[in-house]
Design a protein around this nucleic acid. Sequence first.
DNA 1: CTCATCACCGATCTGATTTA
DNA 2: TAAATCAGATCGGTGATGAG
Length: 304
Amino acid sequence: MLTGMGGTPMIIRNFHYVVDDKKKSRIGGGTHPFYEILCIASGEMTLEFMNESFRSGSRTLFLIPDNVPHQLFKHSASASFWYLELDKGTGPLPGAASFPSVGEAVVWNRLQCGDEALASGPSELAGLIAATADSIVATMQSDSLTRNGELRERIVLLDVSKLFLQITAALQQRRLLIAASPEPEDENPNKQIVQDLMQYMENAYLHEVKLQMLASRAHMASSYLIRLFKTHTGTTPYQYLQDLRMNAAKSYLTNTSMTVKDIAETNGFPSIHYFSRQFKQKYGMSPSQWRQAQGAEPADTESD
DNA sequence: CTCATCACCGATCTGATTTA
DNA sequence: TAAATCAGATCGGTGATGAG
C-alpha cells in the first residue's frame, strides 16, 4: 500500500497476466468498485465500455474506471493481456496525480483504437507511457521482489501515479492539438459547453442529475440548454443520461445476479418501478425477462 | 419478498415569440 | 439572425396495489 498525507491509501486489489488461446470470444468483464488498467500484450481484442466498442491490437492500454460495467472480447485465436485492479482509497496520489475521470477514460480509450495507440502514436509521450506500463508488469512479475510484496506494491503504485500523470499530459497535448487545428466546429463555444455537460453526466450518472443543475453549470436557461444539446448531439440531456444508466443496468443484468431493485438503485434510477417501466418501453420486455433471454444467471438474494 | 402495472403530479421538452 | 424566454404539451417519477 501507499501511505499518503491523509485518508486511506490506494492499494492493489488484483493483478493477472492472462494468456488465452481458448475458442470462447468473451474473455472477461463485469463491474466492480476498482479502477482497472488493462494492457493488451498480443492478439486483437474489443473492450465494450460506456456504450462504445474499443477494438485494438497489441500494445494497447485501456482505462476502466471503478463501477463502470465493461466486457472484453477476443478476435484472434490467441491473446495475452494483463490487468491491474486498484482500490482508489481516499488519500492523495504521489506527484498530485489523479485517477482519469470516466470522460477522460473514454477519450483515452478512443485514442487507443486510432492511429495514436500506445505503440504507434506519433507523440513521444506514447513511448514513455508504454515504458511505464512495461515497468508495472515487470515489477509485478519480478522474481526478486516476490518475498517483499509490500515493497513491490509501493514501486508499482508509484508507476501507476506516473502513468496517470503521463496520460493526463497526453490528453492535454491532444486537447491543445485540437484547439490549434482549424476545424470550425471546435471554435463554437456552445459545442464546448455541450461536451462539458456530456462529460459531467458520464461522471455523475450514478447519482441524481437535474436539468436545473446542468443549466446553472452552463449559465443558461434550461429550455435553451435542451435545444442547444439536441442541436449538437441529436438527443436531449435527459435522454442522454437515461441511455448511460440503461446501458450500465443492462450490463449488471447480464454479468451479476443482483436483484432488479438493487440494479435500479445502483445505476441512478430513482425506483424499481420507474426502471422497470423504462426498460420495457425501450427493449419490449421487463428486466427479468430480458435477463432470462440473455441466458444470464437469475437474481438471488445475495447482491454482488 | 420481488417485480410489474396503473394513475396522478411535477419536471422536461418544444413551438411560438421576443430581444439584442 | 442568433440567442434567449415563455407557456402549454408531453413524458418522467412516485406511491399504491396486485400477481407470482
